[in-house]
Design a protein around this nucleic acid. Structure first.
Lengths: 101, 101
DNA sequence: AAAGCCTATCGTAAATTTGCGATAAGCAAT
DNA sequence: ATTGCTTATCGCAAATTTACGATAGGCTTT
């Protein structure tokens, strides 16, 4: 990768949409989001039971979804409750809709 | 990656959506698709002039978009005309819309 | 048959992603 | 202060992605 992405200037919307798309580009993350939509919220442990993946792997996917802004975590000691970040969810929804015309 | 993706069974729609999202997860590919939407169609060479990327890199992005089904190529010797694949475009649109409720 | 365009593919390198087990960290209750 | 529960982070390995230059392939035209 000789030429860095930074050297190309993309529109802000394009960069945002690409980030959201990247977060949605793994079936496990899609499934996690679906689960969060149904349950409205859930704990990391719940997901570990639902998916045949290591706890660390689930945690990593959650981190990516959080970094993308699609979910947010709330401390409910000793657990952490994850929910959809509705603001950014709407933003993503809008960007995708806009993109497809 | 000890545990392969194949061992987890996802819904067909989830897998499809993940593939579309992956194709959209790079700003260059989003920009290419936007360009195709505006121009309705274009040649590989056009894109090489628009983006500061090597011809081989553009070609690779086009290949991924083609593999994802979002575009299709038509031989117009000595060029190749790329257009949006409207069927799959609509499919992707629907899947994203459905996903976001 | 040869030359010229245009695009795909190959080979390579660097970066990123995905997965795991092991360990650390945070908080509550004992 | 220690134990217990839950989740994040670390370290590693394998796979994939992204980028490039160089080369090959396809089709026209000369």
């Amino acid at each position: 990768m000789q030429r860095s992405l930074e050297s190309i200037v993309y529109e802000d919307e394009t960069v945002s949409l690409a980030k959201f798309a990247k977060a949605l580009s793994h079936p496990t993350r899609l499934a996690i989001l679906k689960h969060l939509e149904n349950q409205s919220c859930c704990f990391t442990g719940d997901l570990v039971e639902v998916f045949p993946l290591a706890q660390s792997t689930i945690s990593q996917h959650l981190k990516e979804l959080k970094n993308a802004g699609l979910i947010q975590g709330e401390l409910k000691p000793p657990k952490i409750k994850y929910c959809i970040n509705k603001e950014n969810w709407s933003l993503a929804q809008m960007l995708f809709k806009q993109f497809f015309d």
